[in-house]
Design a binder for these strands. Structure first.
Lengths: 212, 212
DNA sequence: GTCTATATCTCGATAGAC
DNA sequence: GTCTATCGAGATATAGAC
């Protein structure tokens, strides 16, 4: 699975990732990738044949990092409150470090979702992209065990959770216009978001009368 | 404000809307718009000067419909439960009728958000795009009045609400892969989503011990 | 493996006849 | 107002010398 790449190849991949994530698949220019990698444009084709091929490589890479990074945030043995808290904290923290990631994926989804679907499907089979399903199973199990309530449909809960985490990073410019904020500080907003999202979601499924 | 357009102009706008919404700003081809409108390509430039100009016109149109349609869904005098329920129902219903709308806007956001920001800003000033702020004020007022609790930051609540509604329509292909469903029926999923989203969000802010 | 030069293609835009 | 023909920018991709 691990391939050993020459230094040029890695420089290209590094530059390509930056440019593709910033500009998107169509907005990216091979010339710019070459410039940033400090290599000749022809080299890109020598190593990666075509732009589409280079893009597909990058897409896998990026999604892989994405998946690996937030797989760490689940501890199956903890209680729901802790699991939810850590998941939201970890996920939002990761997104805050890579705020363009959601948009990168969404752009690709806007092309019809074929590539995303295929790559994610493969990653699920390979056990790399596991978190959403793990979360689903945890929620279902804890509900059946009586630890939480009001979760008729666990899939819906997880979708709300994921959307709650990701949405801000997609709609940020829009949110900035709709709700003008004094301090235009993303870090502060994300910190507040962690707290608020956890409370809204957890209080919705916490057992009533359980004020421990 | 209302301009009277010739029939050709309307045909072009109609076709342009379809193509831009389907393919996005860059994916759209002037040739395809002309073909679908049943006019010559040169006519597009005669009426709208440039592709960018045509796109901007369409973007305003689409966002305007969007805004107008979901402005209807708020009744300020009702209680929070009703308001929230109607908002979610109305919004999801509208999105279900126009499932490409969120992606259309998000694509434009991915270009940097300049156009979206400007257009939405203007619409807010013109009183067309009012719903999110209205929702915010309602939540704040009801919290201060003691009708709901656990809403330290009303902006965060509204962001969660909007994200909860919109996210599915953006990530649909991804969700389909992550959570394979027996019945691949969007209508059913959206119906379930209405119910689940309302419950999760409302139970999170409902007063404890208020089981009316 | 690397670089220059160029082929080839797509697409928005326009000139100019009618 | 409408159409045909074409320009020209900008991009990917490749040929071919070194």
């Amino acid at each position: 699975m691990i391939e050993y790449l020459g230094p040029k190849e890695e420089q290209i991949l590094h530059a390509a990732m930056q440019v593709f994530v910033e500009k998107g698949r169509h907005g990216a220019r091979m010339q710019e990738i070459a410039d940033r990698a400090g290599v000749n444009k022809a080299m890109l084709h020598y190593y990666f044949r075509s732009k589409d091929n280079l893009y597909a490589t990058i897409f896998r890479m990026v999604l892989g990092r994405y998946a690996r990074q937030f797989r760490l945030s689940i501890d199956t043995s903890a209680d729901v409150e802790t699991i939810l808290r850590r998941f939201i904290d970890g996920f939002l923290e990761m997104l805050n470090r890579h705020p363009r990631l959601p948009m990168f994926i969404v752009r690709e989804l806007s092309e019809g979702g074929a590539i995303v679907g295929r790559v994610v499907g493969e990653m699920i089979e390979e056990g790399i992209f596991t978190v959403p399903r793990t979360m689903l199973h945890i929620i279902e199990e804890r509900r059946d065990r009586g630890e939480i309530e009001n979760v008729d449909d666990a899939v819906q809960f997880v979708v709300t959770l994921l959307g709650g985490c990701v949405y801000f990073f997609i709609a940020e410019p829009l949110i900035g216009v709709i709700f003008p904020m004094e301090e235009n500080d993303r870090d502060a907003f994300v910190a507040a978001r962690k707290e608020a999202l956890f409370r809204h979601l957890y209080l919705g499924i916490k057992k009533r009368g359980d004020d421990s």
